[in-house]
Nucleic acid binder design. Structure first.
Lengths: 192, 192
DNA sequence: GTCTATAAGCAGATAGAC
DNA sequence: GTCTATCTGCTTATAGAC
């Protein structure tokens, strides 16, 4: 069959931008309709349960895109530092240079938290595990690997918030670029 | 005059929790009304412009509380590390152990961003400046002080998001407790 | 699969009694 | 200063034509 002018994937991508800009409750069907170019009734054709279905589709697509565009392209034969550099470059693109928020952030607030908390928690934990695994394979012990992984993800999420709040994407870019070195810093001998 | 049973400050404090839990658009007058025990019309007595006024009051109160309960109690005669330790302890309390989000985060999304962006941006920038100043007085050069200050604030905001998304406040506590050492780590000699 | 039209309910907001 | 009652418009959602 011929590809539709606008595939469902594209529709979800546009919904994603609205949700990540306005949050779950702030994303009215009117906004979602304008962004996709489909009237409300057409959205219900794709997403029978309405907003809830749209949000779930966004969560799944973001998770899939994260895997495909951020983590999977990392070449495990490169030096670990270059792998992290690759991940951070991919993340800068994944978050549009800090212009749009993270779905894990916006869907963990308010009503959305009740609806999607398991998906969101899994999204965060999987990311932690995957990053910690890279560090373990680079020779870090289990505990430190996990600590560093959490720290890096905390920075990514925090940088998105700070850049958005300050109205300055440079905070995001600079923070992301500093992550590879921080992940690989030698363990602190002095800390007891 | 005798103090009211519920002062306006207390009302704002309760509004604050609703806004920081549900976001600006997610905080309906019904929720705000239930949290304060005042019916909608009574809220309009305190806040003539409605939700917008309530949010602004929350922003101002949080900024004031931040100054009074987080930064001002820091004793400048202590060692810098102990000053930072004090700030982080205060922050853990300020954010209810990571249970409730930061007003700078929730009011920088969606419609609220348009309404309050200047207040929010100033809130972030002031925090950066104040923390950078502490570092400068501890002997760090201007550029590194600013870098470290941004990094610490990024961590605080990120830790709130990650803890909320993962449903685990420990991520917040652990991240905050690590901040004093990170702020004071010796400058990286190897970085060019 | 996309549309027009419309329903039902909730949102923010106000008038005015006490 | 707090309330009851009410209004207008927007929000989500559905029915049904093309």
């Amino acid at each position: 069959m011929p590809a539709a002018l606008t595939s469902k994937e594209d529709v979800i991508k546009q919904l994603s931008t609205v949700f990540r800009t306005h949050g779950y409750e702030g994303s009215t069907l009117t906004l979602l309709s304008e962004a996709t170019g489909l009237v409300k009734a057409s959205l219900y054709h794709y997403f029978p349960k309405g907003k809830q279905d749209m949000a779930l589709a966004v969560i799944n697509q973001r998770s899939e895109t994260f895997r495909r565009e951020v983590m999977d392209p990392i070449n495990p034969n490169l030096a670990l530092r270059d792998q992290f550099k690759c991940m951070c470059d991919n993340l800068i693109h994944f978050y549009d240079q800090g212009r749009v928020s993270c779905s894990l952030e916006v869907f963990s607030m308010g009503q959305a938290k009740l609806l999607f908390r398991d998906y969101i928690a899994k999204g965060i934990e999987n990311w932690i595990l995957r990053l910690a695994n890279m560090l373990k394979q680079g020779g870090f012990d289990e505990q430190l690997a996990r600590q560093r992984a959490i720290d890096a993800i905390v920075r990514v999420e925090g940088a998105l918030v700070v850049a958005r709040a300050a109205g300055n994407q440079q905070y995001f870019i600079d923070t992301l670029n500093a992550i590879p070195d921080q992940l690989l810093a030698p363990p602190d001998q002095a800390s007891k």
